[in-house]
Design a protein around this nucleic acid. Structure first.
Lengths: 344, 344
DNA sequence: TACCGTGCCGAAAGGGATTTCGGAGTTTTC
DNA sequence: GAAAACTCCGAAATCCCTTTCGGCACGGTA
């Protein structure tokens, strides 16, 4: 069978380096790792030998001793990779480039596959596991594990776990405050599946911000699903019932795209007549619409970073000290584009 | 500092199991791994002990002996995760669930970061590396490495490497053949950046299929970039110059979305007046448009699967046998939706 | 009884690196 | 000139598991 190219060169071991430098393995190790008790001349010889053999230490052997691998498992069912990639990047960055590597496992929404992956990750002795949910609803806890587990994006249903989630209430609030700031007063809200905690939380934020300004939502919240189709339909119904609206807060960028479509069909100018704000800041949707979509960004990269840091804090902390638990809501961010403020 | 929950329970080692079962470590190993020369009674005792201690073998130690880790590195700069996630899933699946794990590294288009990640992967003794490009243009080779390297999606610029790419020529051809099959004869082509090999290849396929039917493209190929904006503008120009067209092959789903927008502005019905076909089958775009978008799917999951298999073939093959090289084009697939065939 | 074959089990080596601790060699001190 | 104090270096243990191979005990055969 055909196969891929590679060189035959075996990796040099510390023993090879030691032999070439004419020292013991122990000394070679010390020299390379910058430990003391090595004469400068000896160190130079070892370093030169290591360079000549292109020696790079076997992380497996290292991890075996250290009891730490410098890897974290990322367990997800996010088929799109929309949430998981930024979180992965954040985790990679938590401790300088190349310190931490991420083993990404896609469970595809299958509990059995998830268990398989979990076991594989533990066997590989990952230092911790980040569980990324598909949506912001609570998901089943993995229970007690021999390594720290952090739930990201979707919280665990067990309050004894640590969950890091985006603050959807603040997001809803932020959206409305921005619209108010641009002078809108007659604001409606179109969202997705009301069974999602995310939908409820965002709505809560929306209402709260309006209440603070002495205003109320125009019409009821239009819930259904997170699709563009729904955005189109909902906007049509909304315009029929309340033609006076001047701002629409959408539960997702997809919904917002649909809303924009319908507004164009109704000859409403965006943002002049109606301002539209999305949610998720999914670049491919938000920056390609006309006009481009103002949106709420969940700061997922920061969330991934925080998750990784929590894991290593848990390890470094004294054993047996159970860390922080419960759901922590991380701040979100407003990204302003043309759908709320006209280009000058 | 706060940290995540975990149990204090240290992982049981094979030694613990052996002690509990009252046998030697060697016997415990044999019993657990189903090797011979173990009396049934002994085996049962060991297995029971292992279960009691929730023993799971340390993959690190295993890998150290075996010289194989069962991991592959996925090196990418695909910030979206659009290409890399399906490829990752395919690689995971190449050998049954949980056999292979993938360490995903995002280089973010930075060569230095890529080198860092490469080194980290090699230190972790991955069994092979899959390099996923951002676009289908050739990318710099990593050169000779101690493990097999396969380039996926984007080929390497070194023909001595093995590259697996989607067959863009066949994709262009498939698109046109489908349109011809629905009775279209006046077909135009709007594509992205002409500097991309993908754009050129798709165009080649488009022209070839038309030529086979004794037809020619209506107008020139409209190249620019891969955006919705361009799709909208190009479609407007196209309709102005050639109002008679009845089919448009687009270089990406984003372009197709823009084209659909403009067609609606021009009161052209899709698919009745004009059929539109996209490229990439990016679900979130293709299934949310009105009508839903027929598109060409690059079968990335299969591509990832193939890449992983090549890696392990290269390992299993005799050392020093350089495997297959060059760029291999994998078949693509037509996904039919409402933009080319009216719903019954 | 002496011998051989078979069936089970365990001691030990090995995989690659780190770390401790003792010892050899050199310099300082009285 | 002997004791004390440093420098450097290396043997060996350790991490956890797999695998080889020698050996013990038992039953069967001559």
């Amino acid at each position: 069978m055909p196969a891929a190219r590679r060189t035959a060169a075996r990796n040099a071991t510390l023993g090879d380096v030691a032999k070439l430098a004419g020292v013991s393995i122990a000394t070679a190790s010390k020299a390379i790792n910058g430990r003391e008790d090595v004469a400068p001349g000896t160190r130079d010889r070892v370093v030169a030998a290591a360079a000549e053999l292109a020696f790079s230490p076997n992380q497996l052997a290292r991890s075996l001793i250290a009891g730490r691998t410098g890897t974290v498992g990322l367990l997800t069912s996010d088929l799109e990779g929309r949430f998981v990639i930024p979180i992965l990047m954040g985790a990679e960055d938590a401790f300088g480039a190349g310190q931490v590597n991420v083993i990404l496992c896609d469970a595809r929404g299958d509990a059995i596959r998830e268990q398989h992956h979990l076991k594989a990750l533990l066997n590989r002795r990952v230092d911790g596991i980040i569980v990324v949910g598909r949506q912001t609803d609570p998901r089943p806890s993995l229970g007690e594990q021999p390594v720290p587990v952090v739930y990201a994006y979707a919280p665990s249903d067990d309050p004894a776990d640590l969950s890091l989630t985006p603050d959807n209430v603040a997001g809803g609030r932020l959206a409305v405050e921005h619209l108010l700031g641009t002078g809108r007063r007659r604001i409606a809200h179109i969202s997705g599946d009301p069974a999602y905690a995310a939908a409820q939380d965002r709505t809560t934020g929306v209402r709260a911000a309006l209440a603070d300004a002495g205003l109320e939502l125009v019409g009821d919240v239009a819930y259904n699903d997170w699709s563009e189709h729904w955005g189109r339909d909902a906007a049509a119904m909304l315009l029929a019932a309340h033609p006076e609206i001047d701002g629409i807060v959408c539960g997702s960028d997809q919904i917002a795209r649909g809303v924009l479509d319908t507004l164009r069909d109704f000859d409403k100018r965006v943002p002049d007549d109606v301002a539209v704000i999305g949610y998720d800041n999914w670049e491919v949707l938000a920056t390609q619409s006309r006009p481009e979509l103002t949106s709420i960004d969940a700061n997922l990269q920061q969330l991934g970073r925080a998750a990784a840091m929590r894991i290593f804090e848990a390890i470094d902390g004294a054993d047996g000290v159970d860390g922080e638990t419960g759901e922590h809501r991380l701040p979100v961010r407003l990204v302003i584009r043309g759908s709320t403020i006209a280009r000058r």
